[in-house]
């Protein structure tokens, strides 16, 4: 249930990216906001649920972009797995920590995405442009991450509370 609700949140970010940002004249400010949900899942969700959620969020992101479905799924599963390994060693609390981790993982995701894409589609995006785009998107993600993380945390907590309430009622 918590994974499903986070999936809903991820879909909401995708719809937001495909509609509001463009209409608000923010086309250049686009970044995969949904990455924040994947990173949150990596750090706070049960392992298997987090991985399955990442797979479907990646797939959904590709469906609404010009990319071939599958590439983002692979990278988001790997990103979630990386988050699960990192959470054994570091605690991500506070806006600065969330921003920093999101920036680093976002940049890693963007750079890997560009490389994997060029592996399958050829050098359509020049290296310099790809790295700059990955960096730009990571900066935006890093700045927005505290808010996006808080939204994911609120959704996650609400579902947990709901579950406890129903258990008690039973």
């Amino acid at each position: 249930m918590d994974a499903l609700s986070l999936y809903g949140l991820g879909l909401f970010w995708i719809v937001l990216q495909t509609t509001l940002l463009g209409h608000a004249g923010w086309s250049e400010g686009k970044a995969p906001l949904v990455l924040s949900t994947v990173i949150y899942a990596g750090f706070y969700l049960e392992e298997i649920r987090g991985l399955v959620l990442s797979f479907f969020l990646g797939y959904s992101l590709d469906v609404f972009s010009g990319s071939e479905p599958g590439i983002s799924s692979i990278l988001m599963v790997l990103l979630c797995l990386l988050g699960q390994q990192l959470r054994k060693g570091i605690v991500v609390e506070g806006a600065f920590a969330v921003s920093l981790v999101s920036f680093v993982l976002g940049a890693l995701y963007g750079a890997c995405w560009a490389q994997v894409y060029s592996l399958f589609q050829g050098d359509l995006i020049p290296d310099g442009v790809a790295l700059w785009e990955a960096f730009r998107q990571a900066v935006i993600l890093g700045l927005a991450a505290p808010f996006l993380f808080e939204a994911a945390r609120k959704v996650h907590r609400a579902v947990s509370k709901g579950r406890k309430f129903f258990r008690k009622a039973e």
Binding site: L51, F55, G58, P69, G70, I71, S73, V77, Q84
Partner: peptide, 19 residues
Amino acid sequence: ALWISTLLIVMAMAVFSAH
């Protein structure tokens, strides 16, 4: 987790290939 990740990645590749 590692097994599930591998399975999901293979699934993603299958989706990519079929697409």
